[in-house]
Write a protein that binds this DNA or RNA. Sequence first.
RNA 1: GGGCGCGUAGCUCAGUGGGAGAGCACCUCGUUGACAUCGAGGGGGUCGCUGGUUCAAUCCCAGCCGCGCCCA
Length: 1053
Amino acid sequence: MARILSEFDGLRLHDKSGFHIGPKCSKHPAKRCLHTAPVRPIMPMEKTFDAREAEPRIYADWESKGCFKAGANAKPGAETFSIVIPPPNVTGSLHMGHALNNTLQDVLTRWHRMRGFDTLWQPGTDHAGIATQMVVERKLNDEGKKRTDFSREDFIAEIWKWKEESGGTILNQLKRLGASCDWERERFTMDEGLSAAVRKTFVEMYNKDLIYKGKRLVNWDPHFETAISDLEVENIEMPGHMWHFKYPLADGATYEYVEKDEDGNVTLRETRDYISIATTRPETMLGDGAVAVHPDDERYAPIVGKLCEIPVGPKEHRRLIPIITDEYPDPDFGSGAVKITGAHDFNDYQVAKRGNIPMYSLMDTKGAMRADGKPYAEEAAIAQAIANGEREFDENMVAAMNLVPDEYRGLDRFEARARVVADITAEGLAVMVPNLVIPDAEGEPESQETDEIPGQAGDDSAPAMIPLIDSKPIMQPFGDRSKVVIEPMLTDQWFVDAHTLAQPAIEAVRNGDTKIVPKQWENTYFRWLEDIQPWCISRQLWWGHQVPVWYDEDENAYCAENEEAAVALSGGKSLTRDPDVLDTWFSSALWPFSTMGWPEETPELAKYYPTSVLITGFDIIFFWVARMMMAGLEFMKDDNGKPEIPFHDVYVHALVRDEKGAKMSKSVGNVIDPLDLIDGIDADGLVKKRTTGLNRPEDAPKIAKQTRAEYPDGFEAFGADALRFTLTSMAAMGRDIKLSVERIKGYRNFGTKLWNAARFAEFNACERDPDFDPAAATQTVNKWIIGETAKTREAYDEALSNYRFNDVASTIYAHVYFLCDWYVEFSKPLLSGEDGAEKAETKATVVWAIDQCLLMLHPIMPFITEELWQVTGGKGVLMHTDWPTYTHADLCDAEAEAEMRWTISLIEAIRSVRAEMNVPAGAKIEMLLTDFDMEAAQRLLRQSALISKMARLSEAAVGNEAPAGSIVTAVEGATVNLPLADVIDVTVEKTRLTKALGKLEKEIGGLSGKLSNEKFLAKAPADVVEEQKERLAAAQAEKDKLQAAVGRLEAMG
RNA sequence: GGGCGCGUAGCUCAGUGGGAGAGCACCUCGUUGACAUCGAGGGGGUCGCUGGUUCAAUCCCAGCCGCGCCCA
């Protein structure tokens, strides 16, 4: 519906309803005011855009019209453009990272769709194994139920129920953001189709030995009681301790222990009956299989091959273990001797494998000391026989043995640590040092820290000797979801031979088939893939894709896509399925093709795979990008059977941080929910949000205070457009985004600016002219803005083609402001002039120019632009309107451009003087150009109306002589004289001119120095030399003009 | 320890081998018929430091200082 007020040029109503308010206008009593125009039920545009009301309405409209469907708005035979969404966790809710990620995808998708590409943005969610199981378990707990109250099937049914009810949250939030995904194609990694893809890939890889099962040391999460992959472990430096214990030599043997300094001088010589071992994990001593020293370490050479005693456990059953050599121990670290606990440490595991040292598992799935198996005495005896070399052993036998002494069985691992330390210390087998009072760096006495360290009694009596305990930071592994300390555990797990799969994935990026942007991330990608470890894909969870492997009674494995096939493989045996499920990322790795229907050969797959670009954060390059590359290249083949990449480009964007640069986190209380910026939230709501559900509830008051101080009024409803524009404008390559609420506000205001430009067009009855040809414009101002628009369009497309999102945003932002500041003002005289061809052309140009802004802004700010398009009677939907293809070369009129640039510079010069001289804004003054060239005179003649209006001149003329008492400034080709004798202060004016001259002289000095340098003239490119010459001439000319003005001032006295 | 990145205006950040930019903040003026969610004008930076390459370096190279991230 067109709402053009063609009969009421300049009509302005203060009442939003569109009815005029009364017979007298209170606002403009003295003027001719159209508020007194006849009452008419019309609907002018609202004064501002109400995002909260309009955005959901507009989105619903697009959706109902099928605007997002794959292929919508595609030109016949168009190229395809496809993106698969990084599937958010089904449990997720939208955070800033999603907002950024999806805004960028939407910008690209909308842009291509408008350009007529056959476009698919494939949406969906990820089943997120641990996260989802966690959410549902918590919900059941709230209902007083436990997971173990359910059968596996029933529990999974509970999760599906939850998914149906609550799983769509994040997708609805993406809609609120404006994401133009093809929702009809929504997929979920646990869908039947995607599950079939998982089974098929597993079976194929199994059959190629790319997947295998084995007992390996893996990262074990004692909270979730499952293995996790290396990537799901976060190593965090924590304050820790290193204890030093004596492992007595067997049978009271002794040796000469000698320490030397670098020059070989003996610094210590004593007879020892023990070997000193340093450890950060005393509880694992129970599982030691050996003590290792470096083969070159002379200190221990005398005792290599001998046995020593683990100084813990019942005395009568102390285990003896061999002292071996291995390259792993660092002689300069600690005592240089390392205990080897193959089942609980990754380094020890390697040593144990090399040395065929038994690896004794000490803990159960919850991280407590084992309580199963035979009594300690029996187990210890067997272990001793192994250590003595009297007994053969194998992996499984050793794994079954429980070497935890009876008194420690069932203890939590940290409790066990304290007990072990206390027991050893009590027995006098801790290494002791004098209890020195050590001066610290500031020279103040400070005793060795003894707080809460197991093994050191908090005794006031200050004993002479205390146990040697180093307090120092140690790296500890934590589960990225559970936040508990990860335990290396020796378990049977499924692995993917990632090394083999990585080679084609490396090659595809190296040879440019897939391009990573910004390029620096390629290094990260290569480094990880080149050193990739086997990928542990099995999880001891219930929610996920169950491993498609069945076992018969003899543990023979049959891998097949379903049970019938497995049974057939086994020759008809009765089989049991492997209970493990797969790492969620296993199914995510298939996402680019599984969502398109693979393993079926669907038309979508043929059309949209490989996808055009993947937009993702750097934090999942390893988790996801690299694995999709591996899976794609392994399973997808083009018509010639050549492995096919999943995407041509990978654009890696930054992390969104808070305004101060801190990572947004619940516990810090600095999280900003994108939806709160879109729809607004008051301070109470924000505080409530940030302080509920904290891990540390005691932080709530602090967080509340911080929040109120920072955002005393909460957030206004800035709308999705403003947030999107902000994120786009800040998405510069290679740097994190510090999100500023002020900046969002600024871009909301930018939307209002655009809105008002459209209102201006409406008030002036500027209607779209279907026959308007921008190349045929006749008026200088029109030709000029058309050329400027074309320039902007080219710069925009160039930037977006290169994923330079921030450049795109600033290009269109600057253009809109330029249009409003200058063209809109310039158009006014033409619009209020006589009816005629010029006026008609200008009206059409105004609409055209604003429409071009709407088009170019639409990918970033889809809502307000669509609303403006439709409110002003645009045809169809803006999101399916064709993208412009004109170029600056097509539409530029060089003369018009030069003339308008000159006009602008003159207006700016006059305004500047007026402001500096404090000429009242309302006062009209005269202007006279002197020393003018013909071009300047003609330009003034042609543009005097505009210049007079915008510079508030009563007269604009050319003349031969400057009037006395003029203030002077310069433009290209003329001296500008403003006769302001009554306001002029000779001293002030002289100061102003002197300052300006100073700047010019500095510039002239630099330029002439350069131009008199023969080397510069000889070596610099000709165009650069020419440019410098022109600049020098211009500066010189301006200097002359100002100099003359100074002369005249001095003549005045 | 290895790798990557960053240091430009008070703040947040663009940018370029040849005239230092934007937004916000700040100061002055202003209800001019689109817009006070606004307009006009203005101040403010030895482009981290030191060397090198070059006719020319904020930009390229090396070293140093400071900060961040990833990996061990």
